[in-house]
Design a protein around this nucleic acid. Structure first.
Lengths: 353, 353
DNA sequence: TTGAAAGCGCTAACAC
DNA sequence: GTGTTAGCGCTTTCAA
């Protein structure tokens, strides 16, 4: 077989660049492929002069090692998959950055996919990543249960759940206590004197949404003992600004009208604030608003948004550490790293009804 | 050679899952590997009964095709690399989403990396992606020149520049006219009656920063013909909220004090607003502020931020289309897809000095 | 319609 | 210190 154009720069006419292989390098350097490989992987065992010659050949040919071949031969893919619910939510990008910061230092490249809460999309991404033989996966599961990830488990793909707890023997996980977070937020509103609040939730297929709701209910139960408290619930199909904005009408038309709304995340809350502003409803005087995630932008709004802070970057870092341990440590045991949420009170909820 | 544990679920003691190969499937189905491959790739040419048997075996063994081997054999990697300056900037995530939406429909998985403006990090990411034999790269170059990307060109890796123009025969690109954008923003401030503004810039190694500056200067030159206008310049090392916040002191201590500040992007502007708020400087009365990118969050601040809108999602989509064309169309010619920026005037700049 | 076998690029064991 | 070579998992002729 003859190869065409090896190493020749592509022109517009003939786009027939054929990748330079280790064999080409060997030929140019006048050595065997084994020697080239040695120069690349164990430079110390090859003679100074030869090494220089080979390195030079690598340079002139523009050789770039083919990871696929390397990996096929038993090497590692140096690739980690990250699957999140929504890349446009800064909470997830912060988490991504955290993971990236730890992982790239170890030579990994990250594959990122955003599922938009779709179980089908998640399945197809995970599948693709497995086909690529990622060394591990960091994932915020889209489904309520973990069945879709059973394959990862049986196939032994190191997997760390982001912001989602697993049974001890299944996966490692990094979590934030969302029940507690929901409770903190609701309690705060009740403490401020509200008795009738709305909990504005996203799809309860999302675990975060379920847990935060549970926290709200917990607060209601606990505080109702003294005087009656109420949290009606409202939910939409996705945690986005747009969905938040669209629901404002429904909130305002409730009878009796609630005096406070707690949103399942900040994007929802930002949408609500936007909708309220366009209708000249004052916050917090007419309606108090609380969010969840404490995105940096929330603190700059006027009124500044009360929210529940989660250490997104640290979650990513912790997830990466767990993954690295699972990849490298034969004694690895699955663990859950749990963070505590923190209520940050700002103007959007600081007035009594 | 014997393989251990093939297909056996991993236990905590023996983590020795060996991936199921096409050979295992063949053995289980009682056919040859060639036939299994045919079932997977050209199901139509194999007999109904055989196909069913093979598919069943695929199911029971939990076979997942090894992309590396497929690709080594001449297949494509179904992988595209995306390199941006900063994942935590919603502008870039929007662009990523745009690209993702087009690319995943075609079966691609995206590798994402964030360079934080570092040329070294960029080089190492691009290198890693090339080693992974990505089919193409979408990149916002970190360096002022395009030298670092010369290798991509000579090696014929389809590459589309994001938000950065290239000479016609080098790369495809998607761009927004930043000179125009800078000019729009500056003109607006001058039109509002400001005569002494500050252009608060990021590192001029970043092309966007250079062009926006040029636009500002253009506006100054054009408008100064009638009456004197001035735009002093200030710059920081990165386009982040933190950097914006930190520079406020410097702006306020300028003599004479400027009446308006135009920021090179919204993150910087958000930081400035934050810093001003904490010092009780009123916006726009004491200092008008304009940003760039029109992040959704800017519209919700109080005062709402005047900004220059860029169609981030569409940029991503366009880039993906260009890349797909370059990958598939032998007649491909490099093109530049250019978008126009749009000034969105809001409260942060709507008062005369 | 199916099987046998070569070979993609690379590494590592072994021979020299 | 260097060369030779088998083989990683897969696809694809070519024969049967």
């Amino acid at each position: 077989m003859t190869r065409k154009n090896r190493g020749a720069p592509p022109t517009n006419e003939s786009r027939t660049w054929v990748p330079v292989t280790i064999r080409d390098v060997a030929k140019v350097a006048g050595v065997s492929t084994g020697t080239v490989s040695n120069v690349l992987n164990r430079p110390d065992i090859v003679a100074e002069a030869t090494r220089r010659r080979v390195l030079e050949a690598v340079e002139t040919t523009g050789f770039i090692r083919n990871t696929q071949a390397y990996q096929l031969r038993g090497g590692r893919s140096h690739t980690v998959g990250v699957v999140v619910l929504d890349v446009s939510n800064p909470f997830f990008t912060e988490m991504f950055r955290g993971a990236e910061s730890s992982l790239q230092a170890e030579g990994y490249v990250l594959m990122l996919a955003s599922t938009d809460d779709s179980v089908e999309r998640e399945a197809s991404f995970v599948r693709a990543m497995e086909e690529h033989r990622v060394e591990g996966i960091l994932i915020t599961p889209a489904a309520a249960d973990l069945e879709g990830l059973a394959g990862l488990r049986t196939r032994g793909v190191p997997t760390v759940l982001l912001d989602r707890k697993a049974a001890a023997d299944e996966f490692c996980s990094v979590t934030v206590d969302d029940v507690r977070g929901g409770e903190l937020a609701a309690r705060h509103l009740f403490d401020m004197g509200h008795t009738r609040i709305v909990f504005f939730n996203g799809p309860t297929t999302i675990r975060q949404c379920r847990d935060r709701r549970q926290g709200v209910r917990k607060a209601v139960r606990a505080l109702s003992k003294r005087s009656p408290r109420e949290a009606s619930e409202l939910s939409v199909g996705a945690l986005t600004v747009r969905h938040g904005e669209e629901v404002v009408e429904r909130i305002l038309s409730m009878v009796p009208r609630p005096t406070a709304v707690m949103c399942a995340n900040d994007l929802l809350a930002l949408g609500v604030l936007r909708g309220l502003a366009s209708r000249d409803v004052r916050v917090p005087e007419d309606l108090a608003v609380v969010g969840y995630d404490d995105l940096i932008f929330g603190s700059m709004l006027s009124p500044a948004l009360t929210s529940v802070r989660q250490p997104a970057f640290e979650l990513g870092v912790a997830a990466a550490e767990l993954l690295l341990d699972e990849v490298r440590n034969p004694e690895h045991r699955h663990r859950e790293v749990r963070f505590e949420p923190e209520l940050v009170v700002r103007a959007s909820s600081s007035t009594a009804p």
